[in-house]
């Protein structure tokens, strides 16, 4: 009965170094059945390394990596996953149908070529050689290859790069269909709206660690905050305890405040300091919140590096 409690994928205190570079630095990650986890982060944050660890492509220097409670380097564990990598050149002279047939043969109970093609929306391309397809079509074929083995866990690395809006939405619909069937998904993407449209849970990575984790709503809540900047004599310690203030910090002579109610905060600031100047109020978009999150992580890592 314990089998039901085993997470689909798990990283526990994982460390991976490449020479002097620590790509993944004490990473903890857990994925459950039927869940879509979006992994976000700037380039070099350690997303690809995290995925490579879960796929068994690289071995961790420390910590535990498990797929269905097993070592990902075990073939039996990987028979339950489907993979769509960001950069893989498939044999150009093979036809789409032949590619699906080839990849499906690796799995114990795969979908038929027809079913895979229908799910990925490539039925009209089955007889075409891979090299003759457009970038977006090739991406859809790679998606068909990822799902043809009837996987319980899908790895999708930037799946919609190069797709037009319509194709992207079709792919999203297909992903939702698979999740409804109980499939779990690990998604990495640069498109925040993609994470927003699909993810149950979002993990933001920076410098090999997870710096923010939560539901899309929770991330959005952070985004709903507004940023107030001004030059003031007010003491940061005093301001940071105001109920309107979520977060306060000082940047040179400026005070930076995050708030959910900008109007109330601005009124209070002006009342408290008549000489206040350079007042700015900004709305943070999803992308800005994301950049902000990762920049905060960078800033907090700075002193440590200097100490080291």
């Amino acid at each position: 009965m314990n089998t039901t409690a085993i997470p689909v994928a798990r990283l526990a205190s994982v460390v991976k170094r490449y020479g002097a570079l620590t790509a993944v630095d004490g990473l903890d990650l857990m994925l459950h059945r039927g869940e879509l986890l979006a992994l976000l982060g700037p380039n070099g944050a350690g997303k690809s390394t995290a995925i490579s660890l879960l796929l068994g492509l690289v071995r961790a220097d420390a910590g535990q990596v498990e797929l269905f409670g097993q070592d990902p380097q075990q073939l039996v564990a990987r028979r339950r996953i489907g993979v769509m990598l960001q950069s893989a050149t498939l044999p150009p002279t093979l036809r789409v149908g032949e590619l699906i047939r080839q990849i499906a043969s690796y799995y114990p109970a795969p979908r038929s070529v027809q079913e895979s093609a229908e799910l990925a929306g490539v039925t009209d391309l089955l007889r075409r050689p891979y090299a003759k397809l457009s970038g977006g079509q090739q991406r859809r074929v790679q998606f068909a290859l990822a799902l043809c083995g009837r996987p319980e866990l899908l790895f999708l690395d930037e799946p919609t790069v190069g797709m037009d809006i319509e194709a992207r939405q079709k792919l999203w619909a297909a992903i939702r269909h698979l999740i409804a069937e109980g499939c779990s998904v690990v998604l990495t993407t640069h498109y925040l709206e993609e994470a927003e449209a699909l993810a149950d849970r979002v993990c933001v990575m920076a410098r090999g660690k997870i710096i923010s984790e939560g539901t899309v709503d929770q991330l959005r809540a952070r985004v709903a905050l507004k940023r107030v900047r001004c030059i003031t004599r007010l003491d940061i310690a005093a301001v940071s305890v105001w109920p309107e203030v979520v977060e306060a910090r000082r940047d040179g002579e400026r005070l930076w405040l995050s708030t959910a109610s900008a109007e109330a905060l601005v009124r209070r600031l002006l009342d408290a300091d008549a000489q206040l100047s350079e007042l700015e109020v900004q709305r943070a978009g999803l992308a800005e919140a994301f950049t902000e999150l990762t920049r905060e992580a960078d800033a907090s890592a700075e002193p440590q590096r200097e100490a080291a």
């Binding site: 059945r33 028979r79 080839q102 043969s105 009837r150 319980e152």
Partner: peptide, 24 residues
């Protein structure tokens, strides 16, 4: 939740995978 269809691969399918790979 049903633990998924068994991930053991019948020998016939393993051989099939080798043949498919060679064919491709």
């Amino acid at each position: 939740p049903t633990t998924h269809a068994d991930t053991r691969m019948p020998l016939r399918r393993v051989i099939g995978a080798y043949l498919e790979e060679a064919r491709a």
